[in-house]
Design a binder for these strands. Structure first.
Lengths: 210, 210
DNA sequence: TAGGATGTTGAACGTGCGTTTAGTTGGGGA
DNA sequence: TCCCCAACTAAACGCACGTTCAACATCCTA
């Protein structure tokens, strides 16, 4: 009995799960996922063995799609966070962004891997920017890149967590609002810094030994 | 039947709950809290009405303690994040920090209120720093402060979430490690910025109207 | 065209949860 | 001294969850 909109149930369940997990978090019920996919809970177990198995497959699928999409627009964006902004505005990718944010929020493997990829990418972009004379060199390039990625993604995550969209499917609007509010301060900080003197940095670099 | 270490059960349950919630998140069981307080689950309901009631009281209690502790060392720290570092190192306050981090992570009321307090405080400190000529003025002070607080706390939260301590009670070590890794890049960024030119900031401020 | 593999369901099982309830204890005021 | 009220417990209730199971439908192959 093949319905009109029928794609293989396995993939349909997986996609439904990605959306559900993105909206409700990983506490979402197997029953809810099954209902979203118009399928019985038993079938979910049949295809994925367990809820953990379903989640493992969602992780892999989301990461694969993101890797693929990143490859498409390679070099187009330098900041991990602004990549997310671009993604979140595209309806097709919005669930992926939601899923990744959830995974960061709850400490999942997908979130960890995503952050590590971001750090690795940013490392490359930053090195290029420094070589081109656009970015200042750092005393510790690795630590700087890591901090920049962590603070960008962390600020976004915290903002979305503390002030979630009314309709969880409209994540894009919330992400966009965050960037509207943050781009100005971020560019200011990146261009001019925050402090007027080197005192604090000097003090940190050579703590007095009196 | 009053035991040696007996303080009134109500307070003991509340303190146990703060610790449990900090370590396990708000999914922690009423039964677990009751066990930690050496008390029956029924008594928890007797005193707090429901799990939600218990959590509400924990929120209030934690926020009250933090307000009190902040008042003690007023003006001593300028950054919200470094306040957390100081707190996390003091054994007495470690559970509070864990609780607040959990509340930020899961989007609770306590986390939201804590962040708002931090923003309000930072607003004052930043204004003072600008007046003293230590910090640069900003085109939008409110947005800048908000971004700085959000990124500091967000980076810490993300770091702790993705790489949690083996023993969840040793949160202090994880927080300290984060600051060890981040202080350098942060001071660099705050002192010199990241970019070498004003181009991007100018472009942002007056988008081309061709 | 027979028959087994595969996709799918509805009902049930067991577990752990928040909560309720009935009952016990013990101390302080009348 | 009596009694009442607050503190407290053990047991159970009801529910939602992940998971299992027996049965049925559908397709592919021999």
């Amino acid at each position: 009995m093949r319905l009109v909109g029928d794609l293989r149930a396995r993939a349909r369940i997986r996609d439904a799960a990605v959306g559900r997990f993105a909206v409700d978090g990983f506490g979402a019920t197997v029953r809810a996922v099954a209902a979203d996919a118009s399928v019985s809970p038993g079938l979910v177990m049949h295809h994925f063995g367990s809820k953990a198995g379903l989640r493992r497959e969602c992780d892999e699928h989301v990461l694969a799609l993101i890797r693929e999409a990143k490859a498409d627009r390679i070099g187009q964006v330098a900041s991990g966070a602004s990549l997310l902004e671009t993604f979140a505005s595209v309806d097709e990718f919005a669930p992926l962004v939601g899923y990744i944010l959830r995974s960061m929020q709850e400490g999942g493997a997908a979130g960890r891997e995503f952050v590590e990829h971001m750090v690795a990418d940013a490392q490359v972009y930053t090195a290029e920017a420094v070589a081109a004379g656009v970015a200042r060199p750092s005393q510790d390039e690795a630590a700087r890149v890591r901090y920049l990625v962590l603070s960008s993604l962390g600020a976004l995550l915290l903002s979305v967590t503390l002030d979630p969209p009314d309709d969880p499917r409209d994540l894009a609007a919330t992400v966009r609002r965050f960037f509207d509010e943050s781009s100005g301060p971020m560019l200011e900080l990146f261009t001019d810094g925050f402090l007027t003197t080197d005192h604090m940095l000097d003090e940190y670099r050579q703590p007095r030994t009196t």
